[in-house]
Design a protein around this nucleic acid. Structure first.
Lengths: 133, 133
DNA sequence: ATACACCATGGAGTGCACTCCAGGTCAAGT
DNA sequence: ACTTGACCTGGAGTGCACTCCATGGTGTAT
C-alpha cells in the first residue's frame, strides 16, 4: 500500500505517517527498490495500533519505548508486556478521573434543572440571582 | 486569597492562573484597591472547576464559552445547561473509546501471556519468532 | 522610611505534535 | 522519451497552552 492509501484508510495525514516513522513511533516501513514506502499488512497494523493508542491518550514517549523494545526482539517480551500493563493501569486511572468529572457535570446540570423549575414556578414574580459557577 | 495561595491550593502556577483569566477561562478575579488579585471563594471555585474540566479533557474553547455565557447573566442559563450536557456527552464518548482501548490492550497482554506459556513449555527446544505488533 | 518579598503587566520564549514547503526522485501512461 | 502526478528528504513554520522575563507597583515588618 502507498502512503496515500494508508493515510486515507486510517485518517492520518501522509506527513504525520512520515513523522511517526521518523521519530520511531512506528517501525521502519517496507520500501520499494526505488525507496518509496510500500506498507505491508504489518506496517498497517502498526499504524492502526498507534493511532488507537494515541487517541486514547497514551504518551508518544511510552509508545516509542514499546516500538523500540519490539525492534530489539524476543528478549524484551516481558518488558513489553510490563509496559502495556502499566499503560493500561494509567488509562483506567484516567477513565476513573473522567467518570468523576461526568458526575460533577451531572450535579451541575441537575442544579440548572432545579433552577429552571423554581423559575417556572415563580414566573412573573420575584427574580433570584443564579450564583452557581 | 493571594494568587500564590490559590496556586498552591490547586496546583496551578500563578502564571497559568493569570493566563486563564486573561483568555477568559475564568471570570475576572476580585482585586484589592491596589490592583492585586484577591481571590474570593467563588473565584477559587472557578479555578477548581476549570482545573477539573481541563484535566478531563474539555476544550478551552468550550469552557471559555461557558464562562462567557455565565457572565451574560440569567438569560443564558438554558444555553449553559445545554453546553454542559453536550460536553458530558463528549466525555462519555471519549470514556467509551478509552474503554475499548483498554480492552485492546487486554487482548495484547493476554497474547503475551500465552507466548510466555509456550516459551516456558518449549524451554531449551526450538525458538519461535514472536510477530505480534 | 526603607527594605524586601510579593504582585502587576505586556511581551517574548518554549516544547510539543504536527504541518508545510522546496527541490529533487520515481514510475505509470502515451 | 516525455509528461505528469505521487513520493522522497531535510528543514522551516505553525498553533496551542502555557512559561518566563523585564520593568515597575504594593504592602508589611523593622
Amino acid at each position: 500500500m502507498t502512503i496515500a492509501e494508508v493515510s486515507k484508510k486510517y485518517g492520518v495525514s501522509a506527513d504525520t505517517l512520515r513523522y511517526y516513522e521518523r521519530i520511531g513511533l512506528i517501525p521502519p516501513v517496507h520500501r520499494t527498490a526505488g525507496g518509496i514506502r510500500d506498507y505491508t499488512d504489518d506496517d498497517c497494523n502498526w499504524v492502526g495500533f498507534i493511532k488507537c493508542m494515541r487517541s486514547a491518550g497514551l504518551t508518544i514517549e511510552a509508545l516509542i519505548e514499546y516500538v523500540t523494545l519490539y525492534q530489539q526482539g524476543d528478549e524484551t517480551i516481558q518488558a513489553r508486556k510490563d509496559l502495556l500493563i502499566e499503560q493500561r493501569r494509567l488509562l483506567l486511572e484516567r477513565i476513573a478521573e473522567m467518570q468523576a468529572t461526568v458526575e460533577r457535570l451531572d450535579g451541575k446540570i441537575e442544579r440548572y434543572d432545579q433552577w429552571n423549575q423554581r423559575f417556572s414556578q415563580q414566573l412573573a414574580q420575584s427574580s433570584s440571582k443564579n450564583e452557581q459557577p
